[in-house]
Write a protein that binds this DNA or RNA. Sequence first.
DNA 1: TCATTAATTAACAAGAATGTTAAATAATGG
DNA 2: CCATTATTTAACATTCTTGTTAATTAATGA
Lengths: 110, 110
Amino acid sequence: MDPLSSAFSALADPTRRAILARLAEGEATVNEIAEPFDISLPAVSRHLKVLESAGLITRGRDAQWRPCKLEPKALKGVDDWLSFYRRFWDQRFDKMDAYLTRLQKKEKRK
Amino acid sequence: MDPLSSAFSALADPTRRAILARLAEGEATVNEIAEPFDISLPAVSRHLKVLESAGLITRGRDAQWRPCKLEPKALKGVDDWLSFYRRFWDQRFDKMDAYLTRLQKKEKRK
DNA sequence: TCATTAATTAACAAGAATGTTAAATAATGG
DNA sequence: CCATTATTTAACATTCTTGTTAATTAATGA
């Protein structure tokens, strides 16, 4: 699957978004991550796997623990995709658009 | 499903993202939207339904045509969710963060 | 070595997503 | 009214997702 699709797919699950929110506060082990949820540990483990294959987290090793870490690059990818559409709701980008169009026309006239 | 989840879920499909890209250029009917894809019309119709329930598009009626229109609000919702994580890749936001923390401490000292 | 703790994998079930073709509905216009 | 065009719904098959419990692997340390 392409990186963008797997990122969006991973973010579509509220549990996984909650996990990312937790990791925004700092690294955490699987058990720490699982603690607030009402699902089994294997289920959490699989959510982490999904997040990892989407590039949204990485996992290290510290004795028997597997500390998870937020990996912002994938989120940046989502943001980059989104940036194309920003002009549709953000007036500042609309103005930027108009400015660039004017500039382009000026360029053409030369 | 919560709005954010259905938006992410809708965006996870490349065909649907391509449809949004097409609609960024302007309204289009179902047949116009379907034209570049190698899937059946009913399949496209269902992609549109998914985009519509996610709030990413709206559909009107013009005789037997159903013009589809990009609806940026849902994308703005995604952007808002993302904004919390922006500090992790965007230094400008990191500095903004530090600035706000300093400001808060200053406030506390009063 | 063996008990303990941490985490993953296996095997399975249930439900959702996506595609297909065929049939149905909507709107138009001769 | 009926043919035509645009689109959706129905019925079905296939694959993906997500959860469960039970078993397995990994690392530590008495």
